[in-house]
């Protein structure tokens, strides 16, 4: 019984942790959208900044991956 409650809590926590990935999606969308609006205003400078954009995406995405990891840990490891 007690184990069942723990497992239920873990699954609920996993589901909640997955909402964090939505934040990562917003962040990545924000980075790319701003890059695109900047690139359309000044296309000549865009080519040199794609690397910076990818670094920004990586940082924004890493946090979403962390929440996914927490979900997986709750599902399988706890």
């Amino acid at each position: 019984m007690e184990g069942d409650i723990v497992q239920m809590g873990a699954y609920i926590g996993a589901g909640l942790a997955c909402t964090g990935m939505g934040g990562a999606a917003v962040g990545v969308g924000h980075v790319v959208g701003n890059f695109l609006s900047g690139a359309l205003r000044n296309p000549s400078a865009a080519a040199g900044q794609t690397a910076t954009m990818f670094i920004g995406i990586a940082f924004a995405e890493a946090l979403g991956i962390f929440s996914f990891l927490v979900a997986l840990l709750l599902m399988f490891a706890v």
């Binding site: 990586a58 940082f59 995405e61 890493a62 991956i65 996914f68 990891l69 997986l72």
Partner: peptide, 13 residues
């Protein structure tokens, strides 16, 4: 940590 988990997490997910 982020460097390793980013790659593994993306592939695993």
């Amino acid at each position: 940590v982020s460097h390793s988990i980013r790659l593994a997490g993306n592939m695993m997910a």
